[in-house]
Design a protein around this nucleic acid. Structure first.
Length: 295
DNA sequence: AAGGCTACCAACCGCGCAGTC
DNA sequence: CGACTGCGCGGTTGGTAGCCT
């Protein structure tokens, strides 16, 4: 007996997501929070598999996703973590909260693998013992020990935080907890951009392309007749996004705080402030210790 | 200009795990 | 305890944009 399909394959739409679909999904998540993906297609009328919805949310619409090219620091981190953890993209992604595992995986497969291969082929790489992909013997051992120590520290902090935090009526991460880091300049505000911001960008692109009517996408969009409800949703979202410019952290937190809780059905989010702290710790430690690597 | 090639990335697929009944 | 369900993860695929000839 085989595993039953995750959803009814008949009538399930595949391929790229349209802005309307994104809006419907975000609308659902805003109302019900992420999770219960099975219910998404039935509640929203989306003709998408629940898995597809989850994937779209976690990889594209979720708050705090940073798009664009990877920085040198991120690249170094990925290389080091990959050397240590292997292809555990989700684990690696947990150290880069603004990147998705899919993003990291893609970046690894398309850029870093080749880069490391090149370096491996070169003499410098094989001789000077600074190769991260072959982090070995003493340096790797040290690295692991230090990481383990930090993990233990983080776990302890996590336990403390959870025991203190049980009275918190709103589950999930609290922007106010992150603000100190933002203020200290440790985390850019863009790191905690909301999904609304992502959708806003998307809408801007969409409406622009729709008005110019040049691209294929615009053709497809203009040919798609939005329902009355969707038009209302569009208007509502467009207007709410207009006021959702995280130009400064206070405004951002003000705008985001009431909704952030709603976004936060993901289990890991309960400990995000500690995770952020740990991530920041690890990041600074990584670069302090290994700045001379791979240069 | 057109066809072929390559790189990139969003999305899909299948499997495993954990929770529930 | 086993079947079922939902979710997460890692590997893979397919579409497409950009480059080259």
């Amino acid at each position: 007996m085989g595993r039953p399909p995750c959803c009814d394959k008949i009538g399930v739409k595949k391929g790229p997501w349209t802005p309307e679909e994104d809006i419907m999904l975000v609308s659902f998540v805003q109302e019900h929070g992420p999770g219960n993906w099975r219910a998404v297609p039935t509640h929203t009328g989306l003709r998408r598999c629940s898995k597809s919805c989850r994937l779209r949310w976690t990889n594209y619409l979720r708050p705090g996703i940073k798009s664009g090219s990877f920085t040198d620091q991120e690249e170094k981190m990925i290389i080091q973590l990959q050397a240590l953890l292997g292809n555990k993209w989700a684990a690696i992604a947990s150290y880069l909260p603004e990147r998705t595992d899919n993003d990291i995986k893609n970046y690894w497969n398309t850029h870093l693998k080749k880069k490391l291969k090149k370096l491996e082929d070169s003499d410098i790489f094989s001789n000077d013992g600074h190769c991260l992909s072959s982090l070995n013997s003493t340096s790797r051992g040290q690295w692991e020990r230090t990481l383990q120590a930090d993990i233990n520290t983080a776990k302890q902090a996590l336990q403390n935080a959870l025991s203190l935090d049980k009275s918190n009526p709103i589950p999930g991460y609290r922007i106010t907890d992150v603000k100190p880091y933002i203020k200290q300049g440790k985390i850019s505000t863009s790191t905690y951009a909301s999904s609304a911001e992502n959708i806003a960008k998307l809408l801007k692109q969409w409406t622009r392309s729709d008005s110019t009517n040049n691209s294929e996408q615009s053709k497809a969009s203009s040919s798609t007749q939005l329902s009355c409800n969707n038009n209302n949703a569009m208007t509502e979202y467009s207007s709410s996004f207009e006021s959702f410019e995280p130009s400064n952290s206070d405004q951002f937190s003000q705008a985001a705080t009431p909704e952030a809780g709603k976004f936060d059905g993901e289990s890991k989010r309960e400990v995000d402030d500690e995770e952020v702290h740990f991530s920041v710790m690890l990041e600074s430690w990584l670069f302090d210790e290994n700045d001379d690597l791979l240069v």
